[in-house]
Design a protein around this nucleic acid. Structure first.
Lengths: 105, 105
DNA sequence: TAGTTAATTAACCAAAGAGCGAATAATCAG
DNA sequence: CTGATTATTCGCTCTTTGGTTAATTAACTA
């Protein structure tokens, strides 16, 4: 599986998406501060964190008995790169659509 | 499940990702021109197309007995919007990293 | 040392997902 | 009408995934 596919797969779960969003908004957080993103058990959250880590979306640093998680900007950049690689197709299509809508006036 | 999560989930499969990539590069194609993106049966491809359609990533138009598929630019744009919404965090982090690397010279 | 906090790993179960071959639907060509 | 083409839906199996509770690891507190 290509890296990007794994990245998308990791984001394709509501709980993991919520974890990433919170980390994007609040910055680095210990696992304990992520327990309430969904109404599931701590082990379940821990497993989601592992999936995100293995997909390269988040990094883990150890501080005493705490594990601090943060989004890895490189993963976000790889998504952005893919979008830019295909920008010519989808962005142009939107421009043409906007132009078509304009002409309807 | 939020629309965006469903979009990511749809892209988080190697076969479906390959279908979307081909459609981005070549533009609209009939189902038959997508059969060889993976070494699986036609029914399997058909099911993947259905998942992509239900996620809003591709559109289907009927032409005689052919079904023509194309990427929906709106789906791509919703991904791009999410990236931009959080750009301040991850893009800034990369800038800071680049600056730090520059200072190492 | 005993107890508490923070988080993970282990063992297990149910549901979802991805594959196949067979059957079906719809159109086209003779 | 018959047969070929294009693509889908159906019924089934097998694997993966996401959840649970219980047990474990590691560090802090008194």
């Amino acid at each position: 599986m290509s890296d990007l596919v794994q990245t998308f797969a990791a984001l394709g779960d509501a709980t993991r998406f919520a974890i990433v969003e919170r980390l994007l908004i609040r910055g680095a957080l210990p696992a304990g501060d992520l327990l309430d993103v969904a109404d599931i058990s701590a082990p379940a959250i821990s497993r989601h964190l592992k999936v995100l880590r293995e997909a390269g979306l988040i990094t883990q640093t150890v501080d005493k008995q705490r594990r601090i998680y943060a989004v890895d900007p490189a993963a976000m950049q790889s998504i952005e790169k893919w979008m830019l690689d295909h920008e010519a197709f989808w962005k142009g299509s939107l421009d043409r659509l906007a132009a078509a809508l304009d002409r309807e006036d």
